[in-house]
Write a protein that binds this DNA or RNA. Sequence first.
DNA 1: CTGATCCAGCGAACCGTTTCGACGATGGAA
DNA 2: TTCCATCGTCGAAACGGTTCGCTGGATCAG
Lengths: 330, 330
Amino acid sequence: MSTATVSAVVNETAFVSPELRARVTAAIAQLDYAPLSAARNLKRGRSQLIALVVSDLANPFFSRVVCAAEAAASAWGYALVVFNSDEKPENERRILTRIRTLSCDGILLVPVDAQLRGEFRDDEGRTVPLVQFGRTADRGRSDSVTIDNVAAGRQVTDYLLDLGHTLVGTITGPLHLTTGRGRLDGLRHAMAARGLAPLDAHIRSGEFREDVAYSVAREMIDAPTRPTALYAASGVMALGVMRVLADLGLRCPDDISIASTDTIPGIGALRPRLTRTEHPVTDMVNEGLRILNDRITQVRQDPARQDPARHVVFQPLLILGDSCRPLRVS
Amino acid sequence: MSTATVSAVVNETAFVSPELRARVTAAIAQLDYAPLSAARNLKRGRSQLIALVVSDLANPFFSRVVCAAEAAASAWGYALVVFNSDEKPENERRILTRIRTLSCDGILLVPVDAQLRGEFRDDEGRTVPLVQFGRTADRGRSDSVTIDNVAAGRQVTDYLLDLGHTLVGTITGPLHLTTGRGRLDGLRHAMAARGLAPLDAHIRSGEFREDVAYSVAREMIDAPTRPTALYAASGVMALGVMRVLADLGLRCPDDISIASTDTIPGIGALRPRLTRTEHPVTDMVNEGLRILNDRITQVRQDPARQDPARHVVFQPLLILGDSCRPLRVS
DNA sequence: CTGATCCAGCGAACCGTTTCGACGATGGAA
DNA sequence: TTCCATCGTCGAAACGGTTCGCTGGATCAG
């Protein structure tokens, strides 16, 4: 029989007589045959691969993203290729080139480079669907799935202000990132709404890393005018802050109230329970892959079609723990 | 000029005159050309893809593995495809089939299925290099990189016994896994060496999950004869145990000593500092990829060659925290 | 000057699958 | 009976690179 018939059987793309089909499937089983995707990709122009590029794979937050993305990709029939740009624009560029040669069908990207070009085209000039995740670098050009960072900062700050705190400090991320800048803006807005403003010394930004947060928080907490409440703008930063407290012999919430944003796995075992905003990571990732899959099928059907970019913004959810307490009047 | 020349330039596989080379590189830059790996793979029979199959992607321990594997794969020139078998044999089988169609060059596998067939062959009948990571399911058949689990259990237990504890309990993993069984054996050996044995009620095994450890530990700690020291056989389990203590109002190490094995990210912020054995995850993953790369190049040079399997066993390192204290004579 | 040597560049086959048009057999309608 | 659809199957081109062997011009020694 011919290879065409085998292809028809494997892909169920044409009617094949029962006996011939039986012989084909028998042969497949006997030879333990599996179609080679390289050849299939070459012909079909797709790869059934989704690329996930995160900005810091060592950050447990992104571990959750990887986990959710693997599940979602698998559910949609894709395999997930994981890359780590490590917050370096040159890595990101290198990775995007690599992705192009792999001819991945779609890209879920936590952008690092502000100069990210929105249109990412493959060799045939078709655009490869790209969804920005968590942050945006080219506002509006490509699809994005993000959290409302300003709302996260505001929710947490409002809560702290409600408790009577006025000396609220924050350790936030890099200000050129929407995640770092947004959460700080949220804090400022919330304070401004009550006629307050944070002290300059109480605003610090740095990489979203535990050790960075530790050293920065230590400085701030050691300083003469210590904030009575501290907003750590990410989960790993909160860990760093808690470690500062332990090392300085301070107690939370008795000596200082702590709140954060963006949960990481294992934080549930921390005592006191951290007051924080949670991100619906799984939902966000699912939405990202849904958009990617939409775009992929759409591009395949009508390469010329150019829909406007979709921007899905999720809302953070404030979870109350016992790491904050009302300010005692001293 | 011909495509052969372009190929020669791109792959640096033959000498090309400077001016022609310049024209080629100029054209590549102008057209923004990148070779399509599907076509390249089809011809070369390789994919520059390494598959990483972990047994539980939600476990922060494996997040570290993913992170290290991405870095190592990238350094060797591979891209990393991540799969999650979720401790289910049927998933593992499905994934291995998928990997074969992707014609990955090598596989780093945390095995789930005891019936794992050691020889994993691709369509041409060549064996695809496979390294078992962390656990072994087909002892001796394929290469493996593991930790000395028995030593880990013994080190921790010896330390606890040195502190005077005799009622040592453990929450360990599934006993059909070398990780769960080995750590328990280590504990038994250490106790037997001093003429001791754990109480049956103080030996519990279950999945390597925080919630499982929580409920199991809670039962054990609530029971009349509570162990004075508890060995949690994994990082996430330790978190579950610590949460039990917090919820029961017990203090560590005053009321009970806790020690564990296999560190996870963020555990450094936990107070008290956990006494534990650390796994050299990065070194282990690097070794795994080094073996894979060796095998890959070896198979390419001489498909018939059959070297004996290599088994690299790393030693755990005991890190002393302050979660254990000498048993007070009561 | 001539024949051998060398080498840059090229043509074409090939990798394994999909896809489309062709083809022969079959069956129903005129 | 003849003619035309219909339908199952097949042959062959195409996908985009790599690779091998060939060619033709330059170089060099005799």
